[in-house]
């Protein structure tokens, strides 16, 4: 079975503008991963084709790209998830600077993640044993802790597209992870960071992040919990 990938390419050393190149590839069946097809294009047709990947099963978060206009992981998207009768359009994640081909500069994304103090702060001396936490309280964190920092959510958000300073769903999700951890003492500092027009309030519940998240995290729900917390703190 032949499928066509229409891949956006851009080499900063040669090109002034990104352009599209079509690769006609051989797919075994409709269960083939888009990542396998990208590999085929690179290894058999054009070695200059450049993209990130590592674990190849949706755990490491390296290969977030835009497939037919929608952010997904190349390794978790199979041919049957898209219309492969027509050329499949492959582009880098939107709204981040393009380094080369499908690779974007994620340093801004990481800075936003670091801005919410993504680590447990507990000012009391650690006990000899674990800090106790009920399983219900622990499980409240699990959905947010699934995040693999692939960037699909933040770069799918229209608020991010128009405001590069918007901290974005991924960082807000991380803020939730610690604000609602019963062992944490720094919720207030984190809430200060996100209680700004460029923080949680820039979220307009569009749900693009939820649609994009490859780990099926309902990010908007988590942000809504943060907003409620912010509002309660204010009142």
């Amino acid at each position: 079975m032949k499928v066509t990938l229409r891949i956006q390419k851009y080499n900063p050393e040669k090109d002034s503008e990104p352009y599209y190149q079509e690769f006609v590839l051989e797919a075994g069946d409709e269960k083939e991963r888009i990542l396998d097809l990208l590999h085929q294009a690179k290894w058999k047709h054009d070695g200059t084709l450049t993209f990130r990947r590592s674990c190849a099963h949706g755990v490491c978060g390296s290969d977030g790209i835009r497939i037919n206009g929608r952010n997904r992981l190349a390794c978790s998207t199979l041919l049957r998830d898209v219309n492969y009768k027509k050329p499949i359009v492959i582009e880098p994640l939107p709204s981040l600077p393009i380094v080369k081909d499908l690779i974007v500069d994620m340093s801004d994304f990481y800075k936003k993640y670091e801005a919410v103090k993504p680590y447990l702060v507990n000012n009391s001396p650690p006990p000899e044993h674990e800090r106790l936490q009920s399983n219900e309280d622990a499980e409240k964190l699990f959905e947010s802790a699934k995040c693999i920092l692939c960037g699909c959510c933040t770069t799918s958000c229209p608020s991010s597209w128009s405001d590069e300073n918007y901290i974005g769903p991924a960082a807000l999700l991380k803020a939730y992870r610690f604000v609602f951890d019963t062992r944490d003492d720094a919720a207030d500092e984190r809430l200060d960071v996100i209680d700004t027009p460029d923080g949680a309030w820039r979220c307009h519940t569009i749900f693009n992040c939820v649609e994009a998240c490859p780990k099926e995290i309902n990010i908007t729900w988590h942000i809504s919990q943060l907003k409620k917390q912010l509002a309660q703190r204010e009142m």
Binding site: D108, K112, A115, E164, L230, E234, M235
Partner: peptide
Amino acid sequence: MYKHTGSRGSGAPSWVL
């Protein structure tokens, strides 16, 4: 480049209202 701007409490009242 991401820059943290704004100050605490710059959104809640108008959001609730």
